Amino acid sequence: MNPRLDDTRHRARWPGYAAAVWGFVFAVPSFYWAMGGTAGVESTISPQLVELARRQDPGMLAVLWVTGVLKVVGGMLGLALARRRPWGPGMNRLLQLMAWGAGVLLAWHGAQFIVQGLLVQAGLVEIPPAALPILRWYTYLWGPWFVAGGVAFMLAARAHLRTVADRRYPQMAGVAGGLGALVLSVVALMAGIG
């Protein structure tokens, strides 16, 4: 094998590992809260969600378990993107679709938290005073965390694409994933969800 190509593939693996670590680390609070843990709940998430978590609401527990599993799947996606040997054509398309979809969705979601928080702090948007401490967590912790995850997945997708011999169809799948996530996010925002 060509040593330069092997070195390029090795260097290209770090974004996949970063995305994997992001997914696995982010799954921990979801599973912890789903199992009844309450540390960090009151100060970092909205009061309505805190109350549901305290009451062990079945719907809230289901959401926590599902989001935890999805974050683990994201971690596994990161590992798949960091794989040394290229996958087959179908898997390369699926990885690009999922990675760009996740990356755009996460970056958009985090940017919303940050922009909303900065608008409130600038006095351009008003919220109830009781929500201000939580808003700071969303602005300075959750927002940047989501953006970092989104960037990690997009960089991992880009690095993975460099290892693929025929990039045309995986590239199209990545564009579809990214645009699909963006459209879904905009529709959810307009509907008042998220």
Rank of each mutant, 00 (worst) to 15 (best):
N2F: 05
P3N: 08
R4H: 14
L5V: 14
H10F: 11
R13W: 05
P15D: 07
A19P: 00
A20C: 06
V21S: 09
W22A: 02
W22H: 12
G23V: 02
G23F: 00
F24D: 04
F24C: 02
F26D: 03
F26W: 14
A27D: 05
S30L: 15
F31V: 05
A39C: 03
V41W: 07
V41A: 13
S43Q: 13
T44W: 11
Q48C: 01
L49I: 09
L49T: 08
E51N: 08
E51G: 04
L52Q: 13
L52W: 02
A53I: 15
R55Q: 15
D57I: 05
P58G: 08
P58D: 07
M60T: 04
M60E: 11
W65S: 09
T67G: 02
T67Q: 10
G68C: 08
V73Q: 00
V73S: 03
M76D: 05
A80I: 01
G90F: 08
M91W: 12
N92I: 03
N92E: 14
N92S: 15
L97G: 00
A99S: 15
A99P: 03
G103K: 00
V104L: 01
L105W: 14
A107P: 00
H109F: 10
G110K: 04
G110V: 08
A111L: 15
Q112L: 13
Q116L: 15
Q116A: 09
Q116R: 15
G117N: 08
Q121E: 14
Q121K: 14
L124C: 06
V125F: 07
E126M: 12
I127E: 09
A131V: 09
A131R: 12
R136N: 11
T139F: 05
T139R: 15
L141T: 10
G143R: 00
F146P: 01
V147D: 03
V147L: 03
A148T: 05
V151P: 09
M154N: 07
A159D: 12
A159W: 09
T163R: 15
P170F: 00
P170K: 02
M172D: 06
A173Q: 01
G174C: 03
G178C: 09
G178N: 04
L179V: 15
L179H: 06
G180S: 10
L182Q: 10
S185W: 02
V186T: 11
L189K: 11
M190F: 12
A191G: 07
